[in-house]
Nucleic acid binder design. Structure first.
Lengths: 203, 203
DNA sequence: GTCTATATGGGGATAGAC
DNA sequence: GTCTATCCCCATATAGAC
């Protein structure tokens, strides 16, 4: 009756190793030894590397939904929810510094591998994107909520990449503060928020 | 007397494959067959995978210096040079869509691998960063040129990552236009450009 | 300089005992 | 459900002929 538990442990270990070392560089032996089971036992639970990748991505989608629901519960105000999103950069600062953003780095790696699960990995991005768009809509920017959400997502990815490269905490703090100011400008309709002709968006 | 030529072809093929498929996923056989030489011959030129990685990174540094020098020559005005930087996103759009940014994706992959050449890969970022800072200095923002350069670099990385994920050309065009507007605001000291207390920077 | 042939290890995957 | 034993391929790397 310890099967389901072992399966969960495998997914957890694979999730962590795929993030820390990358999908291509993580072997079955790495995962198995991390969970303290034999390689043979591993194949009882997952028949291929692609199968465990699918399980890891599904688990990340569930985790992300749970995280967003927790933010919804903890922060009744949409503006505070956007700050919660910005704070993931510092909350996970040490991990991002060493391994990058789990969502962005997996999506890019699977793109290079032309892996069939690439779109499922991108779906984790979309969970954040849709949730961010909902907050901008609630703050009176329903018309371009999608573009604003993608802009904020874009910034978090850029900051994560540069923080991984330079490991500079001042850079992280500065850009997080700039993200907060940008959000304030966007939701208050300040002149700092310009609108283009065809593509409505904020600077 | 064809040795140097073969070596250059190996570096070129490895450069392309490390970018397209990733460092960990590229094998010697992939590189050798791409250059139409045998695996054995390969070892006459490079004794290990790390050695060819070092050669590829050195080559990328040279290419980047040449690119920046070409931009300097083609665009006498610093503002136009910044636009040239922004345009690499669309100039290399198809490649970025399929494989991400060569600089950012290699830096993140080597971070995950805890590879000794990680810092050399990051040095390519620094070539752009220093060059961008020079342009902002020339445009009257010498005091926070470094922060502005990193902000623009951050945006290009974020846009590249999201474009690789979503493959949405409207997103690319919209964010490139926003980068241009941000540059205009930064160099003209518009109210869209705010200054923080400790960390001077633009939104 | 370039080749073929080969040594050696690691990684994905299977068979079958317990 | 978990293990050991094993197969097979691929990848790095070397030896030596041409």
């Amino acid at each position: 009756m310890r099967g389901p538990q072992t399966r969960r442990e495998i997914v957890g270990a694979a999730d962590r190793l795929f993030y820390e070392a990358g999908f291509a560089h993580t072997s079955f032996a790495d995962i198995a030894s991390s969970v303290h089971i034999s390689r043979g036992n591993f194949y009882y639970h997952f028949k291929s590397k692609d199968e465990i990748l699918r399980a890891v991505i599904a688990h990340r989608q569930d985790s992300t939904r749970a995280l967003l629901a927790a933010w919804d519960h903890a922060h009744p105000a949409a503006r505070d929810r956007l700050s919660a999103f910005v704070r993931i950069l510092s909350d996970n600062g040490e991990q991002i510094m060493l391994h990058g953003c789990p969502v962005g780095s997996l999506a890019t790696e699977l793109a290079k591998l032309m892996h069939e699960s690439r779109e499922d990995a991108v779906a984790v991005f979309s969970l954040f994107r849709d949730w961010l768009a909902s907050q901008f809509s609630a703050l009176g920017r329903a018309e371009d909520a999608e573009a604003l959400a993608l802009h904020l997502l874009m910034r978090s990815q850029g900051v994560a990449t540069l923080f991984t490269a330079y490991r500079d905490k001042a850079l992280l703090a500065r850009e997080m503060a700039a993200m907060e100011r940008w959000i304030d400008g966007a939701v208050s309709g300040e002149p700092s928020c310009q609108i283009g002709e065809d593509n409505r968006t904020c600077i």
